[in-house]
């Protein structure tokens, strides 16, 4: 007889994948059901399997699960060590004054999946790449309060979906590096000295203050251990790298989350066209 391990491995390899058609009909019905349960649309006819329902959806950029829940807005500076070449108050001011910023977000340094994020004062765009290929593009417009998404892998899209209050609030909760920098600076932190990153002389700060996660956590976690580092160019006073990890206990289990934000382009003047969804003609609306 075949060894048991052989059978286990076969079962491990045994996978069925959903088709694009199935994704379309299931997601359509699921989002419709969600709308109904939230009272956002009047009750309609019963769900019909294998039917394609048009449904709006909104997208918020999420780079790291825990950080996505950060409630920021504190701006109370704690003075850093004397002798630092970087004037940290100036960092906060420059970051805040930056009209736009571009950065790369990843789960960790070796993650092949990453997102390129484009943030202006009123618009966000996030392009997600997996193994070098663009998979999803999300657009949020906080002036018109609409959102659009293009799923390149499935060749699907939705556009001009109204942004709900929840998603509008998410604008502040998101991994907006401006907010993140201010949060780190407002928490208890220590200086890390100098380090050259990508050829740029930087000075760093590190915080292990759970307050950097904000006043409210989305789940009642305990034993929170966080380490967040911010590295700023000694020459320009703009952030170059922000990374961190957090472990927290929840319902008897320890959970870990990591994130890395780098390849920053500060003081960016982002063209309005960058935030206009450009849907290829062969993509299907869902």
């Amino acid at each position: 007889m075949r060894p048991e391990e052989d059978i286990r491995q076969m079962i491990d390899r045994w996978n069925r994948k959903t088709s694009g058609q199935m994704d379309e009909r299931v997601l359509g019905d699921v989002l419709h059901a969600m709308d109904e349960s939230q009272g956002q649309v009047p009750s309609g006819p019963p769900f019909r399997r294998r039917s394609i329902m048009k449904n709006p959806i909104t997208k918020l950029a999420v780079a790291a699960a825990v950080i996505a829940a950060v409630v920021l807005g504190l701006f109370e500076f704690i003075s850093t060590d004397a002798g630092s070449g970087v004037v940290w108050a100036e960092v906060a001011q420059k970051v805040e004054a930056s009209p736009g910023v571009i950065y790369r977000g990843r789960g960790n340094r070796s993650d092949s999946k990453y997102s390129m994020n484009y943030l202006s004062a009123t618009k966000n765009r996030q392009d997600t790449y997996e193994s070098g290929e663009l998979t999803v593009s999300h657009y949020l417009d906080f002036e018109t309060m609409i959102a659009s998404s293009i799923f390149h892998t499935q060749k699907h899209y939705w556009r001009d979906a109204p942004l709900g209050e929840q998603n509008a609030q998410g604008h502040d909760e998101m991994t907006d590096p401006k907010w993140l920098v201010q949060s780190i600076l407002s928490c208890e932190h220590k200086t890390l000295g100098e380090k050259t990153i990508e050829g740029i002389l930087c000075e760093g700060l590190e915080t292990s203050d759970p307050a950097v996660l904000g006043k409210e956590l989305p789940v009642p976690a305990s034993d929170i251990n966080i380490r967040m580092q911010l590295w700023v160019s000694a020459e320009t006073s703009y952030p170059v790298l922000c990374e961190g990890n957090v472990t927290a206990a929840f319902e008897g289990q320890t959970h870990t989350s990591e994130w890395v934000m780098d390849q920053f382009q500060w003081d960016a003047r982002l063209e309005p066209g960058l935030f206009e969804p450009n849907v290829p003609t062969d993509y299907k609306e869902i």
Partner: peptide
């Protein structure tokens, strides 16, 4: 809280 993106994920 009605976040459709989370449901999609």
């Amino acid at each position: 809280r009605g976040n459709r993106e989370a449901m999609c994920r």
